[in-house]
Structure formats: C-alpha cells, structure tokens
Design a protein around this nucleic acid. Structure first.
Length: 278
DNA sequence: ATGGCTATCAAAGATAGA
C-alpha cells in the first residue's frame, strides 16, 4: 500500500499533473493540501476516471484539504476537537474554523491531511494562532491514540515548520522569521514526544520538500523541508520505504511543494484483484 | 535557466503564501 502527501497549491490548476502522478507512481492514498476550492469546484471526474474516490474539506479559495484513494475510505472527520478559528467573528461571535484538517480511515489506518497555519510574521496574530492550532492538534492526536491503542495513525501534510537549521537552505536568511522559531519547533517536537515518528527522517531520507517560485530557488536548490509524514509506532512498523519525489518540482506549472511518499506493508483487498502482469 | 512568482476572485489590485 502506497501513501503520500502533497501540497498541490490549487487542485484546479494542477489536476492533470496530480492524477497523472497518482497513476504513474501507483499511489493508493494521497493527502492533498491547499486545494484552494470548495466541493462544487473540485475536479472529481478526473480522479474518478483514474479510479480514485475523493473526500475533501474546502470552504473558499483559501486552504482546503482532501484525500484521493482507490481503497475504500471510512470514518471521514472534518477538523479535530477544539481546533481554534481565525479571522473575523461570525454572527454567533465565533472565529471561523478554516479548512485545514481532514481525517479518514483506510485499510484500518487512521490518516490525516493537515495544512498547518503559516504564521506569517512573528508579531502577526496568525503566529499565536499557528501555535495554538498545533497544540490542539497534539492534544487531539494523543486522545485518539489513547482511545485506539495499537491502531496505526499518521499525521501527513504541510506543517509549515522547518524543525532543524539544515531544513532550510540558509538559516541566516530566516533570522526573525516564522517556520524556524523555537516555539514552532517546540510544537513540532511535542508531536514526536507524544509518540509520533518522522517516517522519512528516521530512515535517513534527505532533501527539501518546498522551493519558492521566486529567486530561482529550485534551480539553486534553495528549499525548505516543511512537509512530513509523522506516524505512530504501529504505523512506523509498517513502513517499508520512504522518499521525497523531487522530480515533481520540474516541468510545466509545478506546485511549489513536492510529494512525500511511504510504502506500507499492508494487505489490501485490491491486492488479490490486481491482474498479474508478465 | 542571462532569470525577477503564482494562485485566488467583485477581474484590478488586493490578499496569501513561506
């Protein structure tokens, strides 16, 4: 079973690339972030023709998370308990909760597609919002793991945090910036302390997952490692391979992020049905 | 690769990304 996460930066702009990649790379389940559309605008047909069902949470042109899967999707959950909101208070006096978290269960494995708030600037209200969002995510994840002991679970997505200095091309360029601040890194490492393991770093997989469109960042390989798959011990035991698909930053109209992929040693019903090819 | 970003929508400039 092959599982991946990818910040696609608009699914309507990228649908051809994404579906081609799913088929070519033989991916069973993809968590997408920044789909940048609501359900009525989502290109379901292209996924369906390739054999993928889609679940999504999209409210407007910002954010938006989704799953595409050719295995049955169960237990769809929009958002997590006590997720903070951001923006202008609504008629009920509440801050709107953005489309940044979607949970599903596939083949008995609990998976989340997460688009962590950017933070913008250290003195911007988006920054404490980011930290609170991450704290609530950790609490919700711990509660789930306590309630479902032994079930594999993975948090997948764009965390908007570079956990180590070498996860950005030049740490000096990030002085006083978000993504590398100690509170953000503490929030990331708190997820690990809660029992999650970086499926790629723990296996020695190196490389960036994001390169800015500006300043020739990709040709110069001036990127950031901010997209992750964090799995429980039960999930980690299933991982047989892991990689970052740097090739997807090339070619026409790429996303600024690339896919992060893991292979899992999991029996799926489809395996028996798949035709033998000689 | 002699380069200067890309996506969204009240459709032009504003907002957001990181």
């Amino acid at each position: 079973m092959r599982v991946a996460t990818w910040n696609v930066n608009s699914i309507r702009t990228r649908v051809g690339r994404v579906v081609d990649w799913l088929v070519r790379e033989d991916v069973d389940v993809l968590a997408m972030q920044e789909i940048k559309c609501k359900e009525s605008q989502f290109p379901f047909e292209a996924f369906a023709e390739a054999g993928y069902d889609v679940e999504l949470h999209g409210l407007n042109q910002w954010n938006g998370v989704a799953f595409a899967s050719r295995l049955p999707i169960e237990e769809v959950t929009v958002g997590f308990p006590a997720a903070p909101g951001f923006g202008k208070v609504d008629d009920a006096g509440e801050l709107p909760v953005e489309a940044r978290a979607l949970g599903v269960t596939v083949a008995g494995i609990r998976l989340w597609s997460l688009y962590v708030p950017n933070g913008r600037e250290l003195d911007n209200p988006h920054y404490p919002y980011k930290l609170e969002w991450l704290d609530r995510l950790r609490e919700a994840t711990s509660e789930w793991m306590t309630a479902h002991p032994g079930q594999p679970i993975a948090l997948m997505g764009d965390f908007n945090i570079a956990p180590f200095d070498h996860d950005v091309w030049d740490i000096a360029a990030f002085e006083g910036k978000t993504h590398v601040s100690q509170p953000e890194r503490d929030a990331f490492h708190a997820l690990e302390t809660a029992g999650l393991i970086d499926a790629l770093r723990s296996r020695g997989v190196e490389g960036y997952t994001y390169w800015d469109y500006q300043q020739l960042r990709f040709p110069r390989n001036e990127g950031m490692r901010i997209d992750f798959i964090l799995g429980s011990a039960a999930f980690d035991e299933l991982v047989t391979a892991a990689r970052i698909d740097r090739e997807e930053r090339k070619g026409d109209a790429p996303s600024d992020h690339v896919p992060v992929v893991v292979d899992l040693d999991v029996e799926t019903e489809d395996d028996d049905d798949r035709p033998m090819i000689f």
